[in-house]
Design a protein around this nucleic acid. Structure first.
Length: 412
DNA sequence: TCTGGGGTCCTAGGACCC
DNA sequence: TCTGGGGTCCTAGGACCC
């Protein structure tokens, strides 16, 4: 039932082991072989070194919880610039062996090494090991590597042995890979689908893969049929070798402590998120067609409102009043809120901006200029953002220094 | 995993049209 | 004016990923 011709495709999945923690250890040798967690800035474990994992530390644990199971654990602040730099070096190394590389996330990627055996005079297994060892030597950290005939199988394979594992899975070995793996381990199959499948007594990846196509098509949606095919050795997913330059949506959210009822403060946070999201949109030359604001209560209930904009714009100051009306619809003084957020969608090209006949062109231009000027000074904030406690401001931002808030009336 | 922040894709169902 | 069938577009919400 599974493929028997060994390597119709040769796809690598390379996964950094406890990546953030390993990066910190690689630049600071005194941390090597110690229980280390990153996330000190938030007080919650983000990445956990293998020594700490062995002692029972899990993602999301607070430091007081960690102390109980791992008293000598070391807490490190995350350095995202450093993580990005090491990530880039990892992908540069992979690309130096093979041109078809997908940067799936900061710590994982795929490489299509099909056809490279002749060039290197090596088997696929040997090529995979060569890349793995180069990364580990040059970056002073470990990766786990899976080699198989589809992305889904390669990803499952890389998690078979960790850390620093190498797991090649050719056609005839697929069954061994899938046997005894819970369905939740399958990439793209989450807890909801796992619970659904359990009703049919489908518990392992092999159970799932041995289902008939009819069953999968009639009981599950399209992505699951694709996963089913991938696990049977039929390549469905291509590598995405182009780096991300486009977005369907951009979001900016924050959970704050302590939670609050204050309408003014919540509005200030929301404006902050709106500004951040729009700023990112502008750097990618987008104008925004729709803004969603949401509040999350202390009981984890969502209140969300979607606000379609009559004209796409890159400058939120122009739509402040519309946003406030939306905010008032979702805000209730009866709740305490823990999170605010903004998601902007319906993104369009800056060049395609339509200026409505009813919009004041001059006002638009003035706003644009204003943003250009203030943006250059890194202080593009609405006036009410001043309500947000200083320590909560994003690090790169400087305090607002006397730039007066201009209302739309004043500007036009 | 008692819960952070940033994304993507798919589907059902309503609105609208002929 | 009513009824019916069929197509397309859009959106809300769910599920999943790191």
């Amino acid at each position: 039932m599974f493929l028997h011709y060994s390597w119709p495709e040769a796809i690598l999945h390379i996964d950094g082991d406890a990546f953030f923690a390993s990066v910190m250890q690689s630049v600071n040798p005194t941390l090597k072989d110690k229980p280390v967690v990153t996330g000190k800035e938030r007080g919650i474990a983000t990445a956990i070194s293998y020594v700490a994992k062995k002692q029972g530390v899990k993602r999301g644990m607070t430091f007081s919880e960690i102390k109980k199971c791992c008293p000598d654990c070391l807490y490190i602040e995350s350095d995202y610039d450093l993580f990005s730099l090491v990530s880039k070096r990892m992908f540069d190394i992979i690309r130096s062996y093979c041109p078809y590389v997908e940067e799936y996330s900061i710590d994982e990627g795929f490489a299509d090494i099909k056809g490279l055996r002749r060039m290197y005079h090596r088997s696929y297994e040997e090529i995979a090991l060569m890349i793995k060892e180069t990364i580990e030597t040059k970056l002073n950290l470990t990766v786990s590597v899976g080699l198989s005939v589809t992305k889904s199988l390669a990803k499952l394979a890389s998690s078979f042995r960790k850390p620093s594992g190498f797991t090649p899975v050719r056609g005839k070995h697929i069954e061994y890979l899938l046997k005894n793996r819970p369905v939740q381990d399958i990439w793209g199959l989450g807890p909801n689908t796992a619970a659904y499948l359990r009703q049919f007594n489908i518990k392992t990846a092999l159970d799932f893969t041995l289902l008939t196509q009819e069953f999968v098509s009639s009981h599950l949606s399209k992505p699951y049929l694709e996963i089913w095919q991938e696990l049977r050795g039929k390549k469905v997913y291509e590598l995405q070798t182009q780096n991300k330059t486009t977005y369907k949506s951009i979001s900016n959210t924050e959970t704050f402590a302590p939670p609050t009822k204050s309408k003014e403060l919540l509005w200030a946070y929301l404006l902050e998120h709106v500004e951040n999201a729009f700023e990112k949109a502008r750097t990618y030359h987008y104008v925004v067609g729709s803004v969603s604001l949401f509040l999350k209560t202390q009981q984890f209930e969502y209140r969300q409102i979607d606000i379609p904009l009559s004209v796409k714009t890159g400058y939120p100051r122009l739509i402040r009043d519309e946003l406030y009306k939306g905010f008032e619809k979702i805000y209730s003084p009866l709740y305490v809120y823990r999170t605010t957020g903004c998601i902007i969608t319906n993104l369009g090209d800056t060049s395609s901006t339509q200026v409505s006949l009813f919009e004041n062109q001059e006002k638009q231009n003035k706003t644009k200029k204003l943003y250009e000027v203030i943006s250059a000074k890194e202080a593009i904030r609405f006036g009410s953002s001043l309500l947000i406690p200083k320590k909560k401001m994003v690090a790169k931002e400087k305090p607002i220094t006397g730039i007066p808030f201009l209302s739309l009336q004043q500007m036009s």
